[in-house]
């Protein structure tokens, strides 16, 4: 975390996943890396702004998702304990890698700052607000200009 700008960057990530049985090592690893990348976006970048029930920042220019420069090396380690119901003991892994990374990243920020955070994404301005206990314009609900 940059202590001047409060921007957070993940520098290293280890994903240990128990998936029953690795059926295709390259594809399985790709699924985990992709899911971790999405979850890093959830944790740090992908703010959704609402107005009157509509998403304000629904374009690639203003909805920020991770690009190639934004991701750390992601190390994937598999455990194969097995699953009696899956092919050759396999479990599903599509949604799995999304579950852990965002809480892990928020916990890292909590550990670094000693301040509790309970929402994602953790944008720099939100960390600043918590650190300085100064209320700044919230970005999570843009008020309507006129009744719809």
């Amino acid at each position: 975390m940059d202590l001047t700008t409060y921007s957070v960057k993940v520098q290293d990530f280890v994903a240990l996943q128990e998936i029953g049985k690795v059926l295709h090592p390259v594809l399985a690893k790709g699924q985990i890396i992709g899911g971790v990348a999405q979850a890093i976006g959830l944790a740090l970048y992908e703010k959704v702004l609402w107005q009157d029930g509509r998403m304000l920042n629904g374009q690639m220019t203003n909805y920020i998702m991770p690009a190639s420069c934004d991701l750390p090396p992601i190390r994937v380690i598999f455990e194969e304990i097995g699953n009696p119901h899956g092919a050759y003991g396999a479990k599903g892994i599509g949604e799995l890698p999304m579950d852990g990374p965002a809480p892990a990243i928020v916990n890292a920020v909590v550990d670094a700052l000693g301040i509790a955070f309970d929402s994602v994404p953790l944008l720099p301005e939100e960390i600043l607000e918590a650190v300085t206990s100064r209320s700044i314009a919230r970005t999570d609900n843009v008020p309507a200009e006129s009744p719809c």
Binding site: I33, M65, S68
Partner: peptide
Amino acid sequence: SGNLCRCTGYLQ
């Protein structure tokens, strides 16, 4: 950096 990918996480 000008090519976004949502699926792979870029590493592969």
